[in-house]
Design a protein around this nucleic acid. Structure first.
Lengths: 208, 208
DNA sequence: CCCGCTCGATACACCGCTGTATCCGATACA
DNA sequence: TGTATCGGATACAGCGGTGTATCGAGCGGG
């Protein structure tokens, strides 16, 4: 995006466009969404759009980065809370701890669609690929320290940091589809938690 | 698609359209692909298209189902071969066996993009969702018997069939993205194999 | 071998969207 | 409060795609 002064008005318009974009992309897919439709969703004309972004592509990127970061912060808040709570409702077993976290992580249909499409899109564009790779790193950087603290509560520690992080992320991604597609989502979610547990168990050890 | 006689000529045209579609969808994304572009890729005019399909959507489904089945058959052939070979080049350890299979399973950029988009698309359409769910089942039905035979070669057997299958599929899906996105694809592939190994190890036991 | 029908090509009318150029009301700053 | 600048609306020209109706070459059954 070209440099632009950042007034209050501008910021609001921008944000409304970004919010509308998430909805429209989720509903119709990025590829079949027009600038016009995003603007309609946000209650603006295309004039407003082109005054804020150079292309739909740029908006897609901006929207995805913003939402990604937001989700990561929410996850962080979520995971940080139990870890700092008084031991009263601290998890007792490893499986409890994992289940508590796994149940809290949202399996969001709309967001999955958007992310899947963004990832696919990124594979066609080296710059975007880099953005996705960076996000993966950001996730790991956020997740692992939190995991350390959570695991400490149940008396364990990570034995292979480089493996556990990516494994959990892969399991998350892979099982998310299953939860959304499967005819028995309950069962899929249970398998998801089991899988997380197996992985955490395998890549950690008890502290004597 | 509406009922149509199936002559030789027709079948060939259809197939050329399906083949072209895979390429164009992979290159541009389903949403931003026009009927016109698919036809150009196949060397036909739109007349041919509308004579064979009712809509791009219908072609997308037909193409995806065909390719999916084809990939599954290739995988089957791949996995079946070592299991029936003389013990000469049979894998000696569990990790060897897994690595042999994991290395053979292709990590295909173009196909990943198409499938990711199809899955996202399917989440907007109950009928398509059902198709994807059915494919998941087909994969499991193909994979597990082959796994049985492979595992037998290294003296193990599955302890939890309902968990191992989905876990492997999830791991496959999740790590595929990582292999394609990560700045160090080598490392990502190695982690992938490790993850498979961990899962197989966990959900099987040695035969005494 | 021939005729009927299939199937792909062509032509047509139309629509939605694009990106830019221009305009004017709103806004913020002195 | 006045005014320069900002920011969204409007107008414009044009493109690319859509789906259908029609045509005619050539394939294949009898």
């Amino acid at each position: 995006m070209t440099e632009r002064p950042a007034t209050r008005r501008r910021a609001e318009t921008r944000q409304r466009l970004l919010d509308a974009a998430l909805e429209v992309f989720a509903a119709r897919g990025f590829g079949s969404t027009s600038v016009e439709q995003v603007c309609a969703g946000a209650g603006f004309t295309r004039g407003a759009f082109y005054s804020n972004f150079d292309s739909l592509d740029e908006l897609f990127l901006a929207m995805w980065e913003q939402r990604s970061q937001q989700m990561l912060q929410e996850l962080e808040a979520l995971l940080a809370a139990p870890a700092t709570r008084p031991s009263g409702d601290a998890p007792r077993t490893l499986r409890d701890a994992v289940a508590q976290v796994a149940d809290a992580v949202p399996v969001d249909d709309a967001w999955y669609r958007v992310t899947a499409e963004f990832t696919a899109h990124a594979l066609r564009n080296p710059a975007l690929r880099q953005v996705v790779a960076a996000r993966e790193d950001a996730i790991l950087a956020t997740l692992l320290p939190l995991l350390d603290r959570l695991l400490a509560l149940v008396g364990r520690r990570i034995t292979d940091r480089d493996a556990l992080g990516p494994a959990l992320v892969a399991a998350h991604d892979g099982t998310t589809v299953q939860c959304l597609i499967d005819n028995d989502p309950r069962a899929a979610r249970a398998r998801r938690t089991d899988l997380f547990t197996v992985l955490v168990e395998h890549y950690t050890e008890e502290i004597r």
